[in-house]
Amino acid sequence: MSAPETTAEGFHVKPVARDFDAIDRSTLKPPIKGPSALGTDFRRMIGLAWTMATAEFKLRFYGSVLGYFWQLARPMLLFGVLMVVFTVVVRLGNDVELYGPTLLLGIVLFTFLGDATGGAVSAMVDRENLVRKIDFPRMAVPVSVVILASFNLVLNLIPVLIFLLASGAEIRWTWLELPFLLLLLGVLCLAIAMILSALYVRFRDVRPIWEVVLQAMFYASGVLVPVQAIQAQFGDRIEQILMMNPFSAILQQARHAMIAPSHPSALACAHHWYVLLIPTAITLALLIGGFVYFNREAPRIAERL
């Protein structure tokens, strides 16, 4: 530290330290840590997520005359086109029992996967004003996206049930499996949503990459062609490979429980119970890894936006 300087008026001025080594670090306050992923109250996080999801659901159809029917139009239009292609042009679905409801159920479940994960990609960036100004558990954002997609899923399942009964299907006790399968699918979507929402804050290439991945998953998960039709042409090995995909395993079990017993269960397609440990392990790895990564990034999300 240099000696005090004397100005022309005779005042002594103490020079300011110009390097950090000269500053007493003991007087500096620790940096402020941003909000964590879950916060201090888990119920508050769930309440915030529910409020955000319900508010966005109401705003989505506000001022619309047809309202929910616009949400239903996308999967139904896709179903109509694919139904014509695979029953009239290609005639691949003619050998599958209740192919119409089978195809529609696959489209509805995949639409949920696409809405929950695709909407979560830019969820943090879209809510930048909220994230930067309000201290709240960051996990509420991806959870709210999955809850919002769940609202649409429940509504989209109504025409599936109507079309299924109109096609001659019987109500069976195995329908009770559907809520548990949807819960598993929701856990898978939340795991992916946590990773994508945190990654997109730093890397804006995540959106186009995930769009390509979703497109590939749509054709590679057995949504269009039921697994029994694929097995008849390519053998048992392809069934086992498909069941290693968490979404394919859930979809196949849902078709077995909801459509007809002629659709083999996920275990029957896997041939061995330990094959199903692979999609289970993938889901758990995504869930744990996604939470760890999101929890690490949560305190720094606001400053990176």
Rank of each mutant, 00 (worst) to 15 (best):
G100C: 02
H263Q: 14
A281L: 08
R202G: 09
L38I: 09
R202V: 13
G118C: 08
A257K: 00
R204L: 10
I250S: 01
L199C: 13
A116Q: 07
M52A: 14
S221V: 00
F110V: 05
L113N: 00
A266Q: 01
A169T: 08
V187K: 01
Y293C: 03
T174Q: 09
V145P: 00
D95E: 12
F151P: 02
V160W: 04
L284V: 14
S26I: 07
Y62A: 12
D19C: 11
A249N: 01
R43M: 15
I250F: 03
H256P: 03
V89M: 13
A302G: 02
S26K: 10
A216P: 08
A37M: 04
I241L: 09
R202P: 07
D115K: 09
A266E: 01
A116P: 04
T51D: 10
E239H: 07
E211G: 14
E56H: 09
A123K: 02
W173D: 12
E170R: 04
V88R: 05
V13S: 02
S2P: 14
S265P: 08
M76S: 08
G222F: 03
F151C: 08
A149R: 01
M243H: 01
A3W: 14
G67L: 12
L77H: 08
A166W: 13
C269H: 04
S248P: 03
R202M: 12
T111S: 15
V13D: 04
H12V: 15
I230H: 00
E9K: 10
G67Y: 13
A169C: 11
V131Y: 02
A298F: 06
E303G: 09
S36Y: 11
E303S: 05
A191I: 11
V225F: 06
T111R: 12
D24P: 03
Y68Q: 08
M217T: 11
